[in-house]
Every structure is written in C-alpha cells, then in structure tokens.
Nucleic acid binder design. Structure first.
Length: 565
RNA sequence: GCACCCGUAGUCUAAUGGAUAGAACGGAGGCCUCCGACGCCUUUAAUGCAGGUUCGAUUCCUGUCGGGUGCACCA
C-alpha cells in the first residue's frame, strides 16, 4: 500500500522516484496523526516553494485520489502531509500477510552462508556471566539470520590453546595431582591457575617454564598433550551443562587448537607475499601504515599466538564454508584485535576481508569492579540460571500452585528472564551485574512476554476451535486499540530485518515487548470471547496471529514460551 | 601519550536528521461479581558542557568534561 502511494507521489512530483518516496515516508509520532507522513522540507528546496504550501497541495491531490490509493483521507499539518489508511483495507492486507509462510518474512538470505563465531569460552576456566553475553547474543543473531533464510554455521571457537595451558601444566605439576583434579574438576584447575598467577608475580621463572610447556604442546609432546586433553574434557562437561540449560547447541566445536598446525602454512604464505618482518625476535605484519600496532604472527620462541590462529581460522572457514559473511561476537575490548586480523586478511590480498564483521558488546562488571577470577569477583552463569529458575518456581507456587510440569515451566521462565535481560538493551552498553535486575519478572522482562503469550493461549484454549480466518470482518478491528495491535503485528518483518542489518537482537526484543504491551491493552479493553459473534471471530483471529508472532519472536531470542505459567 | 566505546528522568534505558524526547523500575494514586492482576489506567521527572553544519540535531562534525576499555610475545 505504501508502494502505491509512493508511485503516485512520484507521478505528481517531478524530481523524485517512487523508491525515494518509500524511504521518505515515515510513521508519525502520534497515533492521531495518521498512519503515514510525508515531510515536505526536502521537497521545498527542489521545488523552490514553501514546504507548508507543498504539503497542502500534495494533501489536496491525495484526497482527490482517495479511492484509488486505498486511503481514508489525507491531512495537512504544517510541512507534513499525513495519510490515513482505509482501516478495513489495511487490516485485511496485514492479516493476509501474517498468514503467509514464515509469517510473511521474506527469506532474502537463501543460498548464502554466514559463519558465526560466538560463546568460545576458555578451557579450564568457569563459564561466567561475561560468557553468557556472547552466547546469548550470538544465539539470537543465529536464529535471526536463519529466519531470513541464511545458512548459518554456529562455531564455538573454544579457547583451548595458548600459553595459559603451559601455565596450567606447570601449576598442576607443582601443586596438584590426578586424584585432586578427578575429585574436584574445574574447581581444582581454577584453584591452581589462580595460585600460579599470584606466584608468578614474584617469580619470573614460572612464566618461562609455562612458555616452554606451551612450546612442547605445539611440538606435540605426548605428556603435554595428554594433560591438555584431559583438562579440556573436564571443562567441556561444565560448558555443556550451561548450554543445556540455555537450550543452545553448535555446529562446530573446532577451537583454537585445531589451527595449530595451520600456522606454519600461514607463515609461508605471508613470507611469499612479503608481508612478514622480524621484530625483537618475533615475526609480525607491520600495520603502521594503518595506524595500528603490528600484528604478531609468531612469538620469539616460535610458537603461535591468537592473532595467527585467528587468521588461520578465517582462511580455513572461507575455504570450507564459502561464507558470505563471518561474524565474531566478542567483547568490545577485543576491537583492536579484530581490526588487526581483518586488516591482515586485507593486505594479504583477499577481497573478502569486507565480509568479516566484529560484533562487540559492552563489558560486564560486578559491583562496579572488573570481573576477575583471581580475586573472586565473579559470578558463574550456571548459578545465575539456577537462581533465576528457583525464583520462577517460587512465583509459580505463589500464583499458580496447580500448574502441571512446574519444573519445566520454571526453567523456561527463569532462563527466559536471564536471556531477555541480556538482549533488551543495545549490546554495546556496559552492564553492571545485579541480581535484582536479572531476577526481576515485572515490566520489560521475559516473563512479561511469556505471560502475555500464555494469556493469549488461554483464550484460544477456551474457545476450543480452530480460528477461521475466512470469517473475519476487518471492520470489527477498526477501533483504535485493535488497529494499533494490527499495525504493530505488521511490523514484524521490518523488526527482524532491522535487527539483522544492525547485528542487534535488542531490536527484536523491543519489538516483542511492544507487541506484548499492545496485546495486553487489547485484552484489557476488548472482550474477546464475550463479544458478539462477528466481532468475536475477528478478535480471535487477531489473538491467534499475535500469539504466533510472540512465539516466533521469542524463539528468535532463544526464549521458550510455556502454554501456561 | 595515542586509539576505541559510552554520556538522555532518582535508576536502567528508546528514538532511519523531523512534529509535543518514548518506555520500564522506583515514588504517589486507582482498577479483580468482568476471557489469567507476572496485567491495565492516572501521575511524577531527562538529552554533561561549548561551538559548528542544517529549514530542523538526542542523532552528524569540532572542542571540552566525565565514565569505561585497549595499545606485540595472555586470549
């Protein structure tokens, strides 16, 4: 319908195409101002006329074409030209679109592959509140791209290689043993890692030894590798528990260690392309031209480093998956690292360097302090999720004690609260972790959305029959409250596209929130089952579609929706 | 020192360069004989500062102040 208007506008205004009008037309800030607005400031320049005059003229012309354009009326307000749809026609087209495949969302990504690198926790460390962000944001983006038809490869690029494991081996040999690690698992690994770091502060020798052990690992020393593999297994068990709670899976767990034997080839390639220079014993790519510190490829002891492993990884991925885009979801503090890696790919002559995207998120702090394993300023992901589930259980016992599958519902609601809390604001914002905020179930929260869904489902259950869309009289939804709900529903596709374009799941989270709020108002103001038959059918149809979009949108974020709660 | 990110009600935050800056939490008050009150309604309060570009700036540019982060052998 908007296209039709744009077509017409371009026919009466010389210098502007229909496409330009589509981008020019905006949604008015207030409901009373109509459904579509054309600001005429820009036209004033081209036409050398007063913008208010132009708006008045266009308004008049639109009004003369009301029938053809499916509009109720057009009104002039200052330099704006406000357009009101014929509600019945508009509602009809919205409802039809939402009944289409994929809720009317165009699958523009079909045939294209996106690699997504997210979560990627470090082996031998606990999965904490910081890892939760990359995991949740990454998962939401994965679902969003998948919805748009992209073929998405979910890669958990495990932090399972590097000097830190040398440290761990040294620490293990000095202060631990097989029995202790078997008994206490990751807790013990963490204990000796912390001890190593504090001891190393006064003793340089420890660091040297750790580097030596890492060199041994890179040379496939059997003892070093055996210990490393054992530690890795212990960690994976813990990570999987968290992923299971979140309901998140990956397509590949190929971590950093996988690329250790691919760095020599990278070094050769760089040498051939004359990009490698020696600096203080290390081999680097000089990036001074680009106002960046050099990109380290091998350390002075010859071992690889995360820059080189990341470069090797992206070359491998391009070869294996032929991605149209490779997305990295990590903390903002790694911005420089990815700038260097992407630039390295570019100077190596790969034109697909522009397909690499860093999607950063803000830092998580605790009580205003940086998270730190060493001094215990840390909260574990599993504890947060479990506490939230407990909190949901308490709420259920209080509000709906007869509910069946309490445990399953408590998990959906508790986990949903944590996920939604992480996705509702722009990812770039820093978060100071607060139990109170995470465990809040009122207002703009996951449980609010889930509750709304359960409410809609409850109405449909009471009705008992399948909603018949052919019976719908769109005039019955022309009141302001219902109409507003229809308008929001029709914005689903745009929200999903927008989120994908900006790598920003919060766009979907906010959309879902708006939708839930609009439905709650509708539910409050418009009796559904008690309305007279024609109106009832129309309202049921609206309830059905709302419920579908809520469900689908929640799925995109990683939230599950219980039928009852 | 250099670079990057962020400054909006008491708090946490939204706003493709557009109309009266929109929510939530908190505070004050109201709505369950009525489809689920984890809901709805009313009320309270904000763009760090100074310039610039523009018909129009929360948004873009410059400077400044405040907070966060990063600057090669950790990831």
């Amino acid at each position: 319908m908007k296209e039709k208007i744009s077509q017409y506008l371009s026919s009466i205004v010389e210098d502007l195409s229909a496409e330009e009008f589509v981008t020019l037309l905006e949604t008015p800030p207030e409901e009373e101002m109509g459904d579509l607005a054309l600001p005429c400031f820009g036209l004033a320049k081209k036409m050398h006329k007063n913008p208010q005059l132009i708006a008045a003229e266009i308004t008049e012309k639109l009004n003369a074409q009301k029938e053809v354009l499916d509009i109720e009326k057009s009104e002039n307000a200052g330099a704006y030209c406000n357009i009101y749809w014929k509600r019945e026609a508009y509602i009809k087209s919205c409802l039809e679109k939402l009944q289409m495949e994929n809720l009317g969302v165009e699958q523009s990504g079909i045939g294209k592959t996106i690699c997504m690198d997210y979560s990627s926790p470090n082996i031998a460390k606990n999965f904490h509140v910081g890892h939760l962000r990359t995991t949740i944001i990454g998962n939401a983006l994965y679902k969003i791209y998948q919805k748009l038809g992209f073929d998405v490869v979910r890669i958990n690029h495990l932090g399972d290689w590097g000097t830190q494991f040398g440290k761990l081996i040294v620490a293990y040999k000095l202060w631990s043993n097989e029995e202790l690690v078997k008994k206490k698992g990751i807790e013990e690994l963490l204990r000796i890692y912390v001890k190593f770091n504090s001891e190393a502060e006064h003793n340089e020798r420890f660091i040297t030894e750790a580097r030596e052990w890492f060199v041994k690992m890179e040379q496939n020393d059997s003892e070093a590798i055996a210990i490393w593999e054992w530690f890795k297994q212990i960690s994976m068990v813990e990570f999987e528990r968290v992923y299971a709670l979140l309901g998140i899976t990956f397509d590949s767990y190929v971590g950093e260690s996988f690329y250790r034997d691919k760095v020599p080839a990278l070094v050769e390639e760089l040498k051939k392309k004359n990009l490698l220079s020696k600096s203080q014993g290390a081999q680097v790519i000089d990036l001074e031209k680009y106002q960046m510190p050099p990109c380290l490829i091998t350390k002075s002891d010859g071992s690889s480093i995360y820059h080189s492993r990341d470069i090797a990884a992206v070359l491998y991925r391009k070869e294996k998956y032929g991605f149209a885009k490779c997305i990295y979801v990590t903390g903002l503090e790694q911005s420089l690292h990815f700038k260097q890696v992407f630039k390295a790919i570019e100077v190596m002559g790969y034109d697909w360097a522009e397909m690499l995207v860093h999607v950063p998120y803000g830092l998580v702090s605790l009580a205003g302090e940086k998270l730190s394993t060493r001094n215990g300023n840390i909260i574990y992901a599993e504890d947060i999720l479990k506490e939230s589930i407990r909190r949901a259980e308490t709420a259920i016992l209080e509000k709906n004690p007869n509910l069946e599958n309490k445990e399953a519902v408590a998990r959906m609601v508790g986990v949903g609260a944590v996920i939604f809390h992480d996705l509702y604001n722009q990812r770039i914002k820093n978060i100071d972790f607060s139990w109170k905020d995470v465990l809040n179930f009122d207002g703009t929260t996951g449980p609010y959305v889930q509750y709304t869904y359960a409410r809609a489902k409850s109405v449909l259950r009471k009705y008992g029959k399948t909603v018949d869309f052919d019976q719908v009289d769109c005039n019955a939804l022309a009141d302001n409250v219902s109409y507003n709900l229809v308008k929001i529903l029709s914005g689903y596709e745009e929200a999903v596209k927008n989120a994908a374009e900006k790598y920003e799941p919060s766009v979907v989270a906010r959309y879902i929130m708006n939708l839930a709020a609009a439905f709650n108002k509708f539910y409050h103001d418009c009796a559904i089952l008690k309305a007279e038959e024609t109106v009832k059918q129309a309202r049921l149809a609206l309830t059905e579609l709302t419920q579908r979009v809520l469900y689908d949108g929640c799925r995109l974020l990683g939230l599950e929706c219980p039928e009852e709660m």
